[in-house]
C-alpha cells in the first residue's frame, strides 16, 4: 500500500516534470519558428533583389543598347573581360548570382546551349553558331539556386539586327555579397 507521503512526492515530481516538458516544448517551437522566419526573410529578400536585378541588368550601361530597351550583344564579351579585371566592383553590384542571356528566336535548337565566346565570335557563322552568354557567375559555396527570368530584345550591331532572348538570373537564397 502506497503511503500518503510517497504519493505526494510522486505527484510533485510528475507535475514538475510535465511543466518542464511543456516549457521546453514551447521554447523549442518558438525557436524553430524564429529560425524559419529568418530563413524565409532571407529568401524573400534574395528574390526581391533578383527581381530588381532583372530590370537593372537590362538597363545596365555595360550591357544595354543606348536608350532603346535592348541588350547590346557586342558588349557582352568586352564586359566579361572587364569583369575579369575588376571583379570586386561587380561582385558588390550583383552579389551571389549567375546571370545568363540565352537567345530564343531565331535560333537552331542544336546551338541553343552553346556558349558564345571569343572563338565563336570570330567564326564566319556567328551568331548562328552559339546561343548563350554567361555574363556573370559567383556561387562560392555551391548553393542551390532559384531562378527568375524575363524576355529581352537582343541587338547585334554588326548586322543591325534584333533578336529575342531570355535573361536568366539564378540567385542563391542569400543576400550576402
Amino acid at each position: 500500500m502506497v503511503k500518503k507521503g510517497q504519493v505526494h512526492v510522486s505527484e510533485t515530481i510528475l507535475v514538475l516534470f510535465v511543466v518542464v516538458i511543456i516549457l521546453m516544448m514551447g521554447v523549442t517551437i518558438y525557436f524553430k519558428f524564429s529560425v524559419e522566419k529568418s530563413k524565409t526573410l532571407a529568401e524573400e529578400l534574395s528574390e526581391e533583389q533578383a527581381t530588381i536585378m532583372l530590370a537593372k541588368a537590362v538597363g545596365l550601361e555595360e550591357l544595354s543598347c543606348e536608350g532603346l530597351g535592348c541588350m547590346d550583344t557586342s558588349k557582352f564579351l568586352p564586359f566579361k573581360r572587364v569583369l575579369g579585371e575588376d571583379f570586386g566592383r561587380y561582385k558588390r553590384m550583383f552579389g551571389r548570382k549567375r546571370i545568363v542571356v540565352k537567345e530564343l528566336y531565331p535560333i537552331e535548337d542544336s546551338v541553343k546551349e552553346v556558349e558564345c565566346d571569343v572563338v565563336k565570335y570570330i567564326q564566319m557563322e556567328y551568331p548562328e553558331n552559339c546561343g548563350s552568354w554567361v555574363i556573370y557567375d559567383y556561387n562560392p559555396e555551391n548553393e542551390p539556386a532559384a531562378k527568375v527570368s524575363t524576355i529581352v530584345s537582343l541587338y547585334y550591331p554588326e548586322f543591325d539586327e534584333y533578336r529575342v532572348g531570355r535573361l536568366e538570373i539564378e540567385h542563391y537564397g542569400d543576400i550576402r555579397r
Binding site: 555595360e62 547590346d72 557586342s74 558588349k75 564579351l77 568586352p78 564586359f79 573581360r81 572587364v82 565570335y121 550591331p157 554588326e158
Partner: peptide, 10 residues
Amino acid sequence: RIYTEKVSRI
C-alpha cells in the same frame, strides 16, 4: 574600355 573593345570587335 568596354566601348573601345566593342568597336575593335565590330
